[in-house]
C-alpha cells in the first residue's frame, strides 16, 4: 500500500470540504477549513518521505546519512504559520458578523444580505 498516505490526504480534504458546505455555524466552518489545510501537511510530508531515512537534522549523526526531504518540511512550517494567521483573521470576521447580525449561521447571514 504505497499510496495509502495519499488516500488519507484525499479523505481529510474531502471530510473538511464536506464540513464546510454542510456547516451551519461560522466557527465550525473555520475549523473545517483547518481540517482541509491539514491535508496539505500530510501531502507535503508524504511526498518527501523516504523509507528508513532519518529527519534532516545532523547534530548527532554523520552528515551523509540518508534523510528525508527538508524542503517540504520547511514548506509545512510555512503552511502552519499561514494557517494560524488566516484562522485568526477569519475568527475576527466571525466575531464581527455575530456582533452585527446576531447570528453565526451562514444561511441566515445570506438571508439578511439578500
Amino acid at each position: 500500500m504505497s499510496i495509502f498516505p495519499f488516500i488519507v490526504v484525499a479523505w481529510v480534504l474531502a471530510v473538511g470540504l464536506y464540513g464546510i458546505i454542510t456547516s451551519r455555524h461560522l466557527v465550525h466552518q473555520i475549523v473545517c477549513l483547518i481540517v482541509v489545510q491539514s491535508s496539505t501537511y500530510i501531502l507535503l510530508l508524504g511526498v518527501g518521505y523516504r523509507t528508513g531515512a532519518v529527519a534532516p537534522y545532523f547534530y548527532d549523526i554523520p552528515p551523509n546519512t540518508p534523510a528525508v526531504d527538508p524542503v517540504v518540511q520547511a514548506l509545512a512550517l510555512t503552511d502552519v504559520v499561514v494557517e494560524a494567521a488566516v484562522t485568526a483573521l477569519l475568527l475576527a470576521f466571525a466575531v464581527q458578523a455575530h456582533k452585527r447580525f446576531g447570528t453565526l449561521d451562514p444561511e441566515e447571514l445570506r438571508q439578511l444580505q439578500g
Binding site: 504505497s2 499510496i3 495509502f4 498516505p5 495519499f6 508524504g46 511526498v47 518527501g48 518521505y49 523516504r50 523509507t51 531515512a53 534532516p56 534523510a67 528525508v68 526531504d69 527538508p70 524542503v71 517540504v72
Partner: peptide
C-alpha cells in the same frame, strides 16, 4: 509511491 522520495532537491 510513499517512501520512495525521488529527489533531487532534498
Amino acid at each position: 509511491g510513499f517512501g520512495h522520495y525521488p529527489g533531487p532537491y532534498g
